[in-house]
Simulated scan of single mutants.
Amino acid sequence: MPETVRTVLRAPARPSAVAVAGLGVRLPGASGLSGLLAPSALRRFANEAPEHEHALAAATDAMAAASPRTPGAPGAGGSTATVWASSTAGLAAYAQTCADITEFGPGRVSPRRTAHSAFTAPVTAVSVRFGLDGPYLNVTGEQDAGAQAVTEAVRMLTRGRCERVVVGGSADTSAWRSRPGGDPAEGALCVVLQRHAPYGGGAAVRPVLRARTARDGIDAFVRSCLERLDGPPDHLVLSAPATDTRAAGARALLCAAPLLRVEERLGDLGAAGGVAALVTAVALTAAPGPLEQPGPRVLALALGSGNAVAVEVTSRRKGPR
């Protein structure tokens, strides 16, 4: 039977690109952009911490990298929104709170734990800790949810709802994330996006397509993505559940472009995997090159249960220093 794909566009056919102002990476096997490009066997940190603390750590790094001197950076004026993706945020903390109330009684459990026991724990923690005054949005689901968080962040910027967005994803390794054939990992990644390009160039992010696909329709989805690009991609970054066999179709279709699979290098981050695909794409465009020359074009794909999201990352190289 022919492949089928039912496309549901969430943005204009040619949405505007926005600029990357800062990045934050807090993963057991990667502490910066370069670490995302090499496989790592580490999936957990040495010291156990709740998911919202991973989110805060990554957001701190991203906001520190987005200097206030950069137009549109945090602290440079204008509102800042927050968009965060997670598959099971708050569930582990909620389960522990319920167990503690049962064992010790309701009067023995601090009410301050309530915020950390909600599925909005990471986005709330980031927004409150840094006093971000724009709207905030929580996105849940599988790997596609992380890429959709990026798409929603771009839409907020292009529609003028804010001057910048702190967008990220986080994960823990609690029992809530165990699945057959999975390799759960913990950590967080964060990106500060803004409408204006930072001084000296940098990476630009443009949503390409969001669609609901049949299980055998991923090839048709990728073809649709290629038709929306200005040129063939130099790299493909893919994030999908370990049990998702559609990845093979994407690899075969784009055999001319090297494929980097997020889950093979970093483990299964759930919804945060979609954000990891974006940050990895930025890492691929960050290599030094001739000043003011275009860098690689990278297509980041994130697949979930019947959903697929694609984001394009390009850059204007800063050149060697």
Rank of each mutant, 00 (worst) to 15 (best):
R215L: 14
R212C: 02
L291R: 09
D268I: 11
R112K: 10
A125Q: 00
T120W: 08
D244G: 04
L37I: 10
G29C: 03
R321G: 07
S239W: 06
G75W: 03
M156C: 10
V18G: 05
V128D: 02
A185W: 10
D144R: 01
T88Y: 01
A211G: 15
R316E: 10
A204P: 02
S170M: 08
T120S: 15
L291G: 06
A118V: 15
V205S: 06
A49W: 10
A171L: 06
A220D: 11
S239E: 05
V150Y: 05
A276C: 12
R113G: 00
R159W: 12
G75E: 05
G107C: 04
P290M: 15
L253I: 14
A49N: 08
A203V: 03
T4Q: 15
R164N: 11
P2W: 06
D230F: 09
E312R: 04
D234T: 10
T82N: 10
A17S: 14
V275L: 13
W176T: 01
P241C: 00
S31D: 11
G75T: 02
G273T: 07
S87M: 02
L254I: 02
L259I: 11
T114L: 00
A57F: 03
A19H: 07
A145H: 05
L37D: 03
G217T: 09
A38R: 13
L36G: 01
G306H: 05
T102H: 12
L42D: 12
R161V: 04
D216H: 11
R251C: 13
P288C: 06
D244V: 06
D100H: 12
T97Y: 14
A287N: 04
A153I: 07
A149N: 12
Q293E: 08
G77R: 09
G182M: 04
G200C: 07
A19C: 09
R44M: 10
L27P: 03
G146Y: 14
G187S: 13
A93V: 12
A118N: 11
C162M: 08
V191K: 07
V154D: 07
A203H: 01
R223G: 15
A149W: 07
L278S: 11
S86K: 05
Q148P: 00
G134P: 04
A41L: 13
G131K: 09
W84H: 11
S31R: 03
A211P: 15
S305L: 08
D61V: 09
A203C: 08
M1R: 13
A272E: 13
A17Q: 12
H116R: 00
A153H: 07
P15N: 07
D268K: 12
A171E: 09
L132F: 13
T245S: 10
A256P: 04
D244L: 09
